[in-house]
Every structure is written in C-alpha cells, then in structure tokens.
Amino acid sequence: MAKIRGAIVVDTEKCKGCEVCVVSCPVRVIALAQEVNGKGYRYAYMHQPDACTGCVSCALVCPDSVITVYKVKTAASE
C-alpha cells in the first residue's frame, strides 16, 4: 500500500513561536526550537519529521502563514 510522507518548511525568521501549530499537529511532529530567531522567538521546527503525513493542519492554523507543506506518495515501504 503506497505510503503518504509529508514535510513542512517553516519561515523561521517570521515564526513567532506561538505554538498553535504544535498542538494542532495530530502526530506531534512539531516542537519549538531551543534557539531563537532574529526577533527572539523560539521558532517551530519538525521535531519528528518522519511522522509527518502532510495533512496541512499546522499550516491552516498558523496566523503568520510561515508554514509550507509538502506531500508525496512513496512506493510501499522504502
């Protein structure tokens, strides 16, 4: 059965570390980084990238549109 794999890219400079995406991700892919961006915000990043299915939940709730979501159907299991 084809496996859906997803990934997100966060515009870390514009992310305000509001964490809304973190709680909205159904599979807890995202966490806030320990480092901060130019504005002093701990930006979001893929803490568990392999769990991401590209479901766009995070991007939908992001108030600052900093998340771009990618998705592919990969052949069975790699």
Partner: peptide, 19 residues
Amino acid sequence: MVAEIIKPENIVYAKSKML
C-alpha cells in the same frame, strides 16, 4: 528522506500570493 519530499511539485499548502 525529508529532502526528497521538499520539492516544489510536492507543495500541498503554501502562503497565499494575495498576502
């Protein structure tokens, strides 16, 4: 591998061009 996924053709959601 994440790198293969992050390709323009795989974008399913991006910031609106109207923003």
